[in-house]
Simulated scan of single mutants.
Amino acid sequence: MKGIMLLPLFCHVVSPVKHSLKIFATTSSGVKNFPDYVGVGLVDEVQWGYCDSISKTVEAKQDWSQKMFEDDPQYLEWCTQQCVLDQYDHKAHIDILKQQLNQTEGVHIFQMMNSCEWDDETGEVNGFVQFGYDGEDFIAFDLKTLTWIAPKPQAVITKHKWDRDRAHNERWNYFLTQQFPEFLKKYLDLGKSSLLRTELPSVSLLQKTPSSPVSCHATGFYPYRAMMFWRKDGEELHEDVEHGEILPNHDGSFQMSVDLNLSSVKPEDWRRYECVFHLSGAKNDIITKLDKKVIRTNWGKTGILTLQCLFNCIGMPFMHCECFVLVPVSPSEFPAGPVIGGVVGLLLLLAVCITGVFIWRRRDNGFRPANSSDPSSFEISEVRDAALN
């Protein structure tokens, strides 16, 4: 079968026994100074492998995957061959689509998302493969009928062509439901010391200004199968609540937040609200009471800007940028020189990153253009988050 950087997509459902393997591949046309092809592999949202058209080899991103390749050079060679095959295959798809859509120039992006999810208690396996073109859903595989679904009229020609190739569709079925789950089980066993660990987060209440929503922010947790919500008098709230995405940290852990709009909450009712963090596999939830005394804010204070905040400020007028202060300090204690130097350096780094943001991101099981003001576009690698969150 052509190309194998495949991955499972997961629903926003928390389960203590479900594991996922995902592969994202992005191929571009008309983009200068950037690899024509980039592939990224993840297990339970942790990046384990990377490949691009410049290096033309698979690079291990975890200690366990590095050891896997060292112990089995033939497997590394096989993965590398799949990476190279994907490059030629996807490049051909772009050429075909440009002809079909009468496109002669400009930047064009072709993406593939492969996925497999395995429940280690029930043995249930779910597979998924979807392709996107220029930031929009293009075509997806239906495992039940072994046919292709075309969400746009432009994809109907491709659907009919691929539906006729029954042998190729059978190979997709075998790969997504049998071979891919075996890869997932193998990776979980090899990396069990890190992939199957449980780490609880630190949870903080953050607020930009007295009129801003209060954000309940959890960081440093693992695995990614977690959920967080606000509740009042023991009942989960759905109104005046905004849930953030689960985002990766650079140390392999994760972070997430949920905001509560306080505009309709009376001061005397604050004690009735609390933030609940639930981690899959953990015995107890982390409960944080809504209390003004513990809220961290930069209102009227000087503090250290966070990288997350700087990403949020991309594209905004400088004076309109408000940032959380995670470590409030007094003006006399504030290390102005080092911090200002660091912030300037970070801003320069962001400016460089922005020039290369052409990749398309995936959200809600679909593709959409990347937003340079979205911090998740820059986590782990531009391509990984371009396709993932």
Rank of each mutant, 00 (worst) to 15 (best):
G191E: 07
T80D: 01
G356C: 01
I380D: 03
D44I: 00
D119P: 10
F180C: 07
H217F: 15
Y50R: 02
T26L: 04
V125G: 08
F221E: 13
N173C: 05
V203K: 12
I149C: 02
S257D: 12
V325L: 14
S280G: 11
R231A: 10
D71T: 00
P16V: 03
L7E: 08
A387D: 13
H217N: 14
F221Y: 15
G300D: 04
P267G: 02
R296E: 03
K289G: 02
S263Q: 15
S29T: 04
W162G: 01
Q103M: 12
Q100S: 06
S330M: 09
G49F: 01
H93Y: 12
V58H: 00
A351C: 13
D137T: 04
M68A: 07
V214L: 05
A218N: 10
L247N: 11
P248N: 10
M1E: 08
S257T: 10
E268I: 06
C275I: 09
F324A: 00
D71G: 01
G337D: 11
A336M: 13
L196W: 05
S257K: 14
V241L: 06
E382W: 00
D285W: 01
Q99E: 15
Q178R: 13
E136Y: 02
N371R: 13
Y37N: 01
C79Q: 06
V107G: 00
S372Q: 08
K266S: 15
R368A: 06
D233Q: 09
K161C: 03
A351V: 12
K61Q: 02
Q154T: 07
V84W: 05
G123M: 08
C11P: 04
T26P: 02
V58G: 02
S253M: 12
D251Q: 11
V352A: 13
P201C: 10
H243F: 09
T145Q: 05
G252H: 10
G123K: 10
D385K: 00
L42N: 02
I23K: 07
D120S: 09
F24M: 01
A92T: 09
D189E: 14
L7R: 07
I23W: 11
Y174P: 01
D63Y: 04
I94A: 07
I109K: 07
S215I: 09
V13Y: 13
H12F: 06
Y75Q: 06
G281D: 01
H320K: 08
K91P: 00
L349V: 00
G127Q: 11
P16A: 12
V40M: 02
S20P: 00
D95S: 15
V265D: 03
